[in-house]
Nucleic acid binder design. Structure first.
Length: 427
RNA sequence: GUGGCUGUAGCUCAAUUGGUUAGAGCACCGGACUGUGGCUCCGGGGGUUGCGGGUUCAAUUCCCGUCAGCCACCCCA
């Protein structure tokens, strides 16, 4: 075997690149429909851009090196810090809310596995400078509309939504102490993926109060039932306020036409520490794939990174998992990699005439191939056929001298003798 | 970082209890069907059996290591 790409990195052969381009086309189109504009930043950033937010431990998962100027640099593992910097630099000058999206290639030095490589392309969609619930609904609608655009339905994909403010108010109301919250969050985040006993053990370890633990049990039992939670914890005004916010969010999502994709699920917490409010994930309904997309509100992050205090929310959607799902469901379009026309000549000495005709077709924006070496007509047609062109423009010496060519449609073999000029004008 | 499974041509797979120059289909290139493709037939290129050691008269086949891939854990994009 010859050596391939580095582990976790991909070679994109033409058909694979066509798939990637297709996805990006959809991403750009849907983002555009929602009024988002595209930006980009450098793939290489100062290391401290990432350590400032996440601490030193993240360095182990970054591609880092010292450049020739002695700077510590890293290949970007996520886009948000770059976004924060760019927005912060011109925050005052920009109309709010800012609706930006980007499709960066991101890098992470980790053991690769299904749906997760060391490099991927990720759509990032962010709204900055708007704290209203409508913004949260708008953001999630973008992600769901992308699912629709690639042919997935609400049966295939579910959006699970929650809100850390709601979860926090519920836990506080249940009697969990401030300093216990983080560990309870972590335990709840894993609820769907590990046995109930493990979750219970973790909560027992994290929470001192017996009563609080019992409340958490009831809370988890009703994690997908907003009405039940409202009833159960009706004594807390804080909880009721948060539930009202969630109801408004769900109502807005319905108004945006994506209501049937949504499942309320309090156990969605998301690993990233910087989420402050609404959080959501998009999952394949069969559960055999990783999350397609994840995001939420991070109102404090811009102040931390960029030094500008603006509320913000966003999501990331990677190309790897989405491509796997679409391939599994046979929803990837067959890429068209063939030229439209093949110019052939009956007479092997007519190569320069072939070139002239090819040139005129190309000037008409048509994609054209022809045999680069002298070949029999039989061979040329064989090549044209295997190249997959839809039509062959055939030159015969006497006809061509009279300005005529034969246009052959490969699908049915039909031929038409036409004037070259008229044919070109018809394109 | 931990553990399990796997590794033969570009792809999908063969190769009798370890036994002679590792085969086939598809793909690719070319020829024939005497200058209009898709069919058919013929031929060709392409493998130090992932790599490195070991056991053996003999290793694709057994053992060890290593690399890579897949899966799970960890962690998250």
């Amino acid at each position: 075997m010859s050596q391939g790409a580095l582990p976790g990195f991909r070679d994109f052969y033409p058909d694979q690149l066509a798939t990637r381009n297709y996805l990006m086309l959809v991403w750009r189109d849907i983002a555009r429909r929602y009024g988002f504009v595209e930006y980009d930043g450098p793939p290489l950033e100062p290391l401290e851009l990432y350590t400032k937010k996440s601490g030193e431990e993240i360095v182990g998962q970054l591609y880092t090196f010292t450049d020739k100027g002695g700077r510590q640099v890293a290949l970007r593992p996520e886009m948000t810090p770059t976004l924060a910097r760019m927005v912060a630099a011109k925050a005052n000058a920009m109309r709010k809310p800012i609706r930006w999206f980007s499709i960066p290639q991101l890098f992470r030095y980790e053991r690769q596995q299904k749906g997760r490589l060391r490099e991927h392309f990720q759509l990032n969609v962010d709204i900055i400078g708007e704290s209203s619930v409508a913004a949260d609904a708008e953001l999630l609608a973008v992600a769901i509309d992308i699912m629709r655009a690639v042919g997935l339905t609400s049966k295939h994909v579910r959006a699970r939504v929650s809100d850390r403010r709601l979860l926090t108010s519920l836990l506080v109301s249940a009697g969990v102490e401030e300093n216990e919250l983080a560990r309870v969050f972590a335990a709840i985040d894993k609820t769907g993926r590990e046995p109930r006993e493990v979750t219970r053990d973790k909560i027992t370890a994290a929470v001192a109060s017996e009563d609080a633990r019992k409340s958490i049990e009831r809370l988890l039992a009703n994690a997908k039932d907003l009405d039940a939670l409202a009833k159960e914890f009706a004594s807390s005004p804080q909880v009721l306020e948060e539930i009202a916010r969630m109801r408004e969010y769900l109502a807005f999502l319905a108004a945006l036409g994506v209501g049937d994709w949504i499942d309320f699920d309090l156990s969605i917490v998301r690993g990233l520490a910087y989420y402050t409010g609404n959080v959501f994930e998009l999952f394949d309904a069969t559960g055999e794939f990783r999350a397609i997309c994840g995001g939420g509100r991070y109102d404090d992050l811009l102040a931390t990174i960029g030094g500008v205090d603006l509320p913000a929310l966003g999501f990331g959607m990677g190309d790897v998992v989405l491509t796997e799902i679409l391939r599994g469901r046979n929803l990837l379009p067959t890429p068209v990699l063939s030229a439209e026309y093949w110019v052939a000549a009956e007479d092997e000495s007519m190569l320069s005439e072939v070139m002239r005709v090819a040139g005129r077709l190309r000037a008409k924006s048509r994609s054209v191939e022809y045999a680069l070496k002298p070949q029999t007509l039989s061979r040329q047609l064989k090549s044209a056929s295997s190249a997959g062109v839809t039509s062959v423009v055939l030159l015969r010496r006497p006809d061509y001298q009279n300005g005529k060519v034969t246009v052959k449609t490969m699908a049915d073999g039909s031929e038409q003798n036409v004037g070259l000029d008229a044919f070109l004008d018809s394109l």
